[in-house]
Design a protein around this nucleic acid. Sequence first.
RNA 1: GCCCUUGUAGUUCAAUGGAUAGAACAGAGCUCUUCUAAGGCUUUGAUGUAGGUUCGAUUCCUGCCAGGGGCACCA
Length: 579
Amino acid sequence: MIRNILENSIKTALWELKIDKSNPVINLEHPEDLSHGDYSTNIAMVLAKQVAQNPRELAEKIVAEIKERLPKEISKIEVAGPGFINFYLSPEFFVLQNKEILKVGKKFGLNKNLKGERTIIEYTDPNPFKEFHIGHLVPNSIGESVATILEANGAKVMRACYQGDLGLHIAKNIWAILKDNSIKDFQKKTLNEKVNYLGKMYAKGAEVYENPQGNEKKEIEELNKKIYEKSEKEINKIYEWGRKVSLEYFDSIYKVLGTKFDRLFFESETQELGRQIVEKNIGKVFEKSNGAIIFKGENYGLHTRVFINSEGIPTYEAKDLGLAKKKYDFYHYDKSLIVTGNEQKEYTKVMLKAMSFVFPEFAEKTKVITNGFLSLSSGKMSSRTGKVVPATSLITDTENRVIEKMTARDINEKEKKEIAQKIAVGALKYSILKQVNGKDIVFDFDKSLSFEGDSGPYLQYSYARAKSILRKAKEERVKSRFDPSQIKSQFDWASINILEKLLYRFPEIVERAGNEYSPHYIATYLIELASSFNSFYATGKIVDKKDAESSYKVALTEAFSIVLKNGLNLLGIQAPEKM
RNA sequence: GCCCUUGUAGUUCAAUGGAUAGAACAGAGCUCUUCUAAGGCUUUGAUGUAGGUUCGAUUCCUGCCAGGGGCACCA
């Protein structure tokens, strides 16, 4: 990459000037203002004090040294401001880069930094028998995107989902089903109807548990034990039925969201293992307290948590230890990522601390990515009985709005529906991924659906537009061609210039997003890229047989469409050819 | 009470310790005999507060103010 060439160039200069003793980190950034060049380094300002020189003078010396062996990719170097060294890339460099994009296509942006690294990433984690709500969309979008980004950086990624198929929430649900007794009627109904039924029953059970009229609380707790022990056939049957319905339902949502898990983990398989791990380490890591087995996080500036409760049942904490082992046995990971809500942050610290004693090798490899809370800004969502908004209803509501917007388009109804779904999901995913991980997200229903500016549909629209141009170019037989001889005339075009100056950066963005597990770098980059393309688009015709520069413009449009599509793919957003 | 976290235009978000703090929406004003106007172009407007470190602070440190989360038998 060009970045490395510049870095080496600077290092050599420092070495020649005999000021490389401390082996400084070369900080190369893209100045925000393009008139400050394509790359800029502050190295002279950083070193000025060390070598007791004026930063600008030092910068001049470094520049003189670099000029001695100027890489061909650089057309100009200058010292600016308080001592920045600015590099300007040459027109030839951009032509070569553009050619490269057309040549490697789908693979443009990929690298092998993480080659051979096995990463398991756990995300989404809905609980069977409960609603898949809008809160699940956040870790799902982030997890799926991070997984894809890591793959783009060369890692081998295993997508995992961990689900609570045990516990009180299920007892509440089944308790209500038993009372209701209309489950027989549901065997032949649609998946949606079954899911709605489960939802209703859960709401009922949860309500009764919170505000019991009589003995309900105790009944539910006893039922919980029975479910756990699998002691009653009828209950087992309902349990299996509900679990199956839930999982089928989740699958149908994953299909829409574009997630495919390689492995589902369940609490029912981590529980026993978790218990054994904790029990084996009583006295060493864990201790007994009030009949429970706890980990004293307080000793490490954290808080104390129960791993096995006084009933002898392993809690989530213990199960998580079992899960770490299960995951390792299954995948032998080098890195284990867990995407989970902010509210779990403190918890994961305690759990990881405990893990660092039990499985130091796993704890070291584990990293938690936290995600924020998604709320809807307006009360425009059709209000439902429950407090949680199901993910599917948000998606379909969004879809309907998209279809409304598409009435004027000349696209058949069936296709329209498919496209609308891609746009709806894209709008949601983008509004989640454009932000730094861990920050709360306010989804403004109206704003995100207006599809203007900083949005997923804006990116999709830009892509569809580029594709439309390329279709026309094909019809008119204007071929994509980057020819260095065209450079001179092209270079007056400010908008082309900006587009080119952004295109070549994509691989750097992919690398950074991978290093920091942060899809938002991709999102903000793509907006800037699409915006520069749209400006370019507005300056005049791209496809024009009579225009000698047309083939260059078409080629640039093609390069743009490739980079945008590759970027959208990293966000898990589909790019329709037309919309 | 202790711990974590967040405060940037009217609103929703950016900004590896760097240059004039970027966008988008909303507001004001332009722009379709042209390849998708879901677009483009002008324009108004912001770092919670008080200190400190630094050549340089939205970024690091401390206090205060204001949100959010967590603090033993839920997940």
